[in-house]
């Protein structure tokens, strides 16, 4: 458990759910694609640990922010795709707003101190 909680990839704690919600915003993806998309979009700075990805996805499922449904992968294999729900969209907005406020605050401190 503690092993999974300490990110080695420079991912700020608590940021992963927001990132997952964000990358799902444009459409349903399977687990590997979520990890890849975050990795690519962050210019390969952020690496999503599998050990963190799947427990986090389960938590999002419990909260009802995403749902899972069967689909076919690009390699032609049956796999579950995770899709953002209406609740998830709302949550994403809340998290983004919160994140913006925090980064703004941090920026303010960094600039003026």
């Amino acid at each position: 458990m503690p092993m999974a909680d300490t990110p080695k990839s420079g991912m700020p704690p608590g940021a992963l759910p927001m990132l997952i919600l964000r990358v799902l915003h444009s459409g349903a993806l399977h687990g590997y694609a979520i990890a890849q998309k975050i990795h690519v979009l962050s210019s390969e700075v952020l690496a999503v640990e599998e050990g963190l990805l799947y427990p986090t996805l389960q938590k999002l499922l419990v909260k009802g922010w995403v749902t899972a449904e069967w689909g076919t992968s690009e390699t032609g294999r049956k796999v579950r795709f995770y899709r953002l729900t209406a609740d998830g969209r709302k949550q994403l907005k809340v998290e983004l707003a919160g994140y913006d406020r925090i980064t703004q605050a941090i920026q303010d401190v960094l600039r003026t101190a």
């Binding site: 399977h30 687990g31 590997y32 990890a35 599998e50 799947y54 389960q58 899972a68 992968s73 390699t75 294999r77 049956k78 796999v79 579950r80």
Partner: peptide, 14 residues
């Protein structure tokens, strides 16, 4: 089982 399948797939792709 579905989750196991997801992980299995992830592993294949990785």
């Amino acid at each position: 089982a579905e989750l196991a399948n997801d992980m299995e797939f992830h592993r294949e792709m990785a």
